[in-house]
Computed example of a mutant assay.
Amino acid sequence: MDEPNDLIVVADHDEAVRSGFERLFGDHYKVACFAESEEALRFLKQNPATCVIFSCYHLPGRGGTAFLRASEMIVPQASRVMLTRETSAEAIKKALNEARAFIYLEKPCPQEELASALETALAHHKQQAKDRLLLERTLAGSVKLLIDMLALFHPEAFRRTGIVRKQALKIANEIGIRKTWELEMAVMLSPLGEALLPKQILARYRAARGLTEQERDVLDRSPAQTRDLLQNIPHLEKVSEFLYLSARGFDGSGFPKDGPTGEDIPMISRILKLLTDLWYASPEGGPDAAAFEALAIKRKKYDQKLLDIARKVLLDEGLEERSGQISECSIHSLRPGDILVDDVLTESSHELVLSRDHTLTPTTIRRLEHFHHTTGVRQPIRVERHAVPKEALDATG
């Protein structure tokens, strides 16, 4: 018999209800039961693949309505079901509107009705997951196009995204984050706030020159600008919150002043804080021992476990061999899919045009051609080039 895969969470103070769920559905599904809200929420944070959440109305802790609302922020694709003896219009209204419950069931609930509700909730969850995957792919493509265009007009702000994205994925793999879409979106969009800042502030900060109190306040508030830009875009609400807290120190320092501390800071925000500061502390070749020592001096600002993991998986990343062939190209011989090995600079003033590790697209190649005609670009350009699949060559005839 196949092992059960779908995870069902039940939060109910009644032991008979919890044991009933395990007895009825334990052979076909993974069932996790809890008697109060906070332990259930901690479990959900560790199990983002939860499919259906059942809660009673008078749940010890924060109550069933607040629990289901909080669970939506943690596992938005899970279907939520309110199971209660409350039959008042006010209770139903709270369950459906405030708790955003998918189904409302009255206790005692017949076994057949409960099984039917579970099947309906599972089907809803699977459709939600399918729709979200399609939307994520579409949105990821749109964000990638947006970042490519912004990187051409503000290369200094966006030059770190390619490097930090690779670093973030290595850390995610090490700590067991399997779904990385929100992490990747957060990395790609993290420079938005900086791109709106005065360039002189960014230049002084990157050169490790002192900032006035007013300039430091403007710099620290860049995550708030990013959140304001993104929070109304569907499916980027959580990403905007991760970015808002990405300057928050593990010890409670940084922006926002009244924000969370320690492990209450979302993991993605902690990763962004660490990797952003590491990028500024690192030489052009990538993180070295000195960069990690610089962060260790202010270790209280970072999640120590993350800092140790980053040192383990990133310290020697500059020594890694690239998987593709390194080619020296003129602008006219660049291809979509080529990855820049070095920064692309102007021919005379050596200003940054496009940062290393940027994957070229037809749009960015055309932009480089136009830039070369007007200003001049240093050539040849070193790129990492992967072999074109045979079927693609056959298709082009």
Rank of each mutant, 00 (worst) to 15 (best):
V218P: 01
R227W: 13
T346L: 14
N47P: 06
A140T: 12
S246W: 12
T261F: 03
L368T: 12
P234A: 11
S327K: 11
D338K: 01
E369Q: 15
Q231F: 13
A195N: 03
K300D: 09
K107T: 09
R132T: 05
H125I: 00
R382F: 04
T87S: 09
H125Q: 13
L169W: 07
L44K: 09
L122M: 00
E369Y: 15
R385G: 08
I381G: 03
S71R: 10
Y104L: 07
T84W: 06
L352G: 11
D343G: 11
L183N: 04
L307M: 13
F21Q: 00
A70T: 00
P191V: 02
A157H: 12
L278F: 14
R322T: 08
E156G: 09
K179C: 03
I326M: 08
F153P: 00
A203S: 08
F21A: 00
F21S: 01
I177L: 14
F292T: 14
A40I: 02
S55N: 03
L122A: 01
V187P: 04
K144I: 01
A296D: 10
T212I: 05
R69E: 01
I175Y: 10
E351F: 15
E347Q: 14
H124E: 09
I233L: 08
A281L: 12
L146I: 02
F371N: 10
H235R: 13
L189R: 01
R311E: 13
L314N: 07
V31L: 07
G64C: 06
G252C: 03
D12R: 10
G285N: 14
Q111A: 08
S240P: 02
I8E: 01
